[in-house]
């Protein structure tokens, strides 16, 4: 299946010499939700800006739906919707008119019914005649999404869509993203919120210092990179870890608990033998708990590795 977005050896060096992207290649499958994670200045926004035509690449190429974003910019851009990071809107225009304007800009005739549907989807219909200057920050962000959806894009870029919005709105946006995915829209979102990627993404890309460190299916990534920990609660306090258990990667967690970290992908986790040795050492178990590392821990470890 052809990729809906194909980024090939993309580089960008800004005036002044800052290298924002270093020969980045990335293929995005049609209909997937890809979350791009990365610290500030990693190159996420630069990459999106190049794909959407706002920034000129220094080297490399990008195609959307098989159309080169430079030579076939009209066909490529028609497929793309962009919700930028900054909440910039025309302050004195009404919600309805500004969304209609976006549709026209993308070469489509007026369609009040379509605009109404988009505004209702984003709970903006009641505000259709309000000027943007009168809206809250969260509402303005919804307007940006409505503008991006006004021309029915096949690929939607959400650059930090939930930065600074409340929990309720964030959850509503996630629901919107899920509905768009169900309609076959490909979604690429950059985010600082790892739980956002964890909650809605199919694949996760990690980008740092202008390079893509990895792109992988979220579940596989978490499984591959995921370390698990076993918390062993004992019935009686422990002064020190017995010598017979010194061969295990054990840490004491308070007076009456031990933490055992293991790799789920290893041939043997060592849990059975550990529990036997604990019993042999005369310790009695009160409870057991296991915990999977979060995407955030994986992300932090990857970025730290790249910085090292």
């Amino acid at each position: 299946m052809p990729h809906i977005v194909s980024v090939d050896r993309l580089s960008k060096t800004y005036e002044g010499g800052f290298e924002a992207l270093k020969s980045v290649s990335l293929d995005i499958e049609e209909g997937e939700i890809l979350a791009l994670l990365g610290p500030n200045g990693a190159g996420k926004t630069t990459m999106i800006s190049i794909i959407c035509g706002i920034t000129t690449p220094s080297y490399g190429s990008v195609s959307v739906g098989g159309h080169d974003v430079v030579t076939g910019f009209r066909a490529a851009r028609r497929l793309v919707g962009l919700v930028p990071q900054e909440v910039n809107v025309e302050p004195f225009e009404t919600v309805f008119n500004t969304v209609s304007f976006s549709r026209g800009l993308f070469g489509l005739p007026r369609d009040p019914a379509r605009i109404e549907a988009v505004l209702k989807e984003l709970s903006l219909w009641d505000k259709r005649d309000s000027k943007l200057v009168e809206l809250s920050g969260g509402m303005k962000r919804r307007v940006l999404i409505a503008k991006a959806l006004s021309h029915e894009p096949r690929v939607l870029f959400l650059d930090e869509p939930t930065a600074g919005v409340d929990v309720e709105l964030r959850r509503e946006m996630w629901e919107t993203v899920s509905r768009l995915k169900a309609d076959g829209v490909t979604i690429i979102l950059t985010t600082h919120y790892i739980e956002e990627a964890e909650a809605i993404a199919d694949r996760v890309g990690v980008i740092a210092k202008g390079e893509i460190l990895l792109v992988e299916e979220k579940s596989k990534l978490m499984k591959r990179m995921g370390q698990k920990s076993l918390r062993i609660e004992l019935t009686a306090p422990l002064d020190a870890i017995p010598d017979s258990l010194s061969g295990y990667a054990l840490e004491q967690d308070g007076p009456d608990a031990l933490i055992y970290t293991y790799d789920t992908n290893a041939e043997r986790t060592g849990i059975t033998r550990l529990l036997g040795d604990i019993a042999a050492a005369g310790l009695h178990l009160a409870d057991l708990q296991t915990k999977q590392s979060s995407l955030e821990e994986i992300f932090v470890s990857l970025v730290q590795e790249s910085a090292a």
Binding site: C52, G53, I54, F73, R74, A75, A76, R77, R78, V80, L82, P84, E86, N88, V89, E90, P91, S102, L105, F106, G107, K147
Partner: peptide, 17 residues
């Protein structure tokens, strides 16, 4: 004005010459 308030992104990312 669109440059100043940042809405110029829309003109630049639209399929227009």
């Amino acid at each position: 004005f669109p440059k100043f308030i940042g809405t110029i992104y829309e003109h630049l990312s639209a399929p227009i010459s």
